[in-house]
Design a protein around this nucleic acid. Sequence first.
DNA 1: CTCACTCATGTGACGATGTCATATGGTCGA
DNA 2: TCGACCATATGACATCGTCACATGAGTGAG
Lengths: 196, 196
Amino acid sequence: MVSRAESAAATRRALLDSAAELLDEGGPEAVTLRDVAARAGVSRGAPYGHFADKESLLAAVAAEGWERLGDEIAAQQGSPSDRLRGALAVLVTIGRRCPHRYRQMFGAPAGEETGMLINASCRAQEKFLAIVSELVDERDVHRYGGLLFTGVSGIIAAELSGYFATGTWHTSADELVDTLVTTIADGRAQRPVHPR
Amino acid sequence: MVSRAESAAATRRALLDSAAELLDEGGPEAVTLRDVAARAGVSRGAPYGHFADKESLLAAVAAEGWERLGDEIAAQQGSPSDRLRGALAVLVTIGRRCPHRYRQMFGAPAGEETGMLINASCRAQEKFLAIVSELVDERDVHRYGGLLFTGVSGIIAAELSGYFATGTWHTSADELVDTLVTTIADGRAQRPVHPR
DNA sequence: CTCACTCATGTGACGATGTCATATGGTCGA
DNA sequence: TCGACCATATGACATCGTCACATGAGTGAG
């Protein structure tokens, strides 16, 4: 038979998967601990044996999203410039495919699992910085890397809010990402600009 | 005495102010229709005479935030470059002073008031574009304006999530904003780059 | 092999909350 | 002055997060 530890681990996994599904389908409001438990095949109180509360469960889902994002960033291949554009494209793709999970990842960390969530995001962001470090001068890595990552995340957030579909900006998220990476990375790679 | 219309308008205003206060104090989860009504001095059911549901009330609060943001952007004075940096500084200031309201403004629009909220944000964003149009070539206004606005919003969101306080980026939101506006606006003002 | 123990899970319950149906009381037009 | 209208108040209901307690199966010591 299955040991008790294996059963508990499977339950935890099923809870995480069910929560991620409900999050993707209907946003955080649609993630009901009762529905999560039902979809995982357990009862209402079972999640409390694995997560402190609903916020912690959602934080764990977001942390797994950061881990997957970090893996996909690290899996980029080709020239440093290709890997940079590929990594940012991963960000765009995740935002479009799972907008609610994306907002959960980039939203305000809350609950007891805040530290764990921040750590997961930092690990992914450092993998991104590793790519940037091959393109710009050592002293500009954090400056330009942070600008690229946070800038693209803002562009995606604007697209998810529908700001590119209402005719104000007359542009697209893809064009803005391309402009940003071209201006920052390609433009500054040859002639790094250091703080005075 | 006060007319009925005046009384209703005052109630609506009190509801909006109370909701904004509760939002700033404890985030969207802390905005309880019961608390909003109590702080406004009315009963639980009163808000439903002015707003369809809780989402609509929060959307109305966010829309007023966009209006105030647009006013402060339009109030910038000095050279075009000063007005651009001032407008972006307004964005940063609002995000730091009222993080929850900021997230409500830039978060996913929901509820019946989505259109109204999008319109309010577009009005503010167009005032920002008016400043940008004085700095870059006409054909680059939307491209660089959108990049500046959405990029800075992403930088602020990262700061609100605590990503600059955990030692990953080794930089600050202010430095990133300065780098972005310097690279984009100042760098491209003299020599506009058009799509091929 | 047995038995007490441990811990994940199931179940009942409670307070809080969003929302609606209905009652009510004051205001405005005729 | 009177009847309609409308903002508000109140009661009620379903849902949800959360906890206390019960239960039952896996586990290790003897």
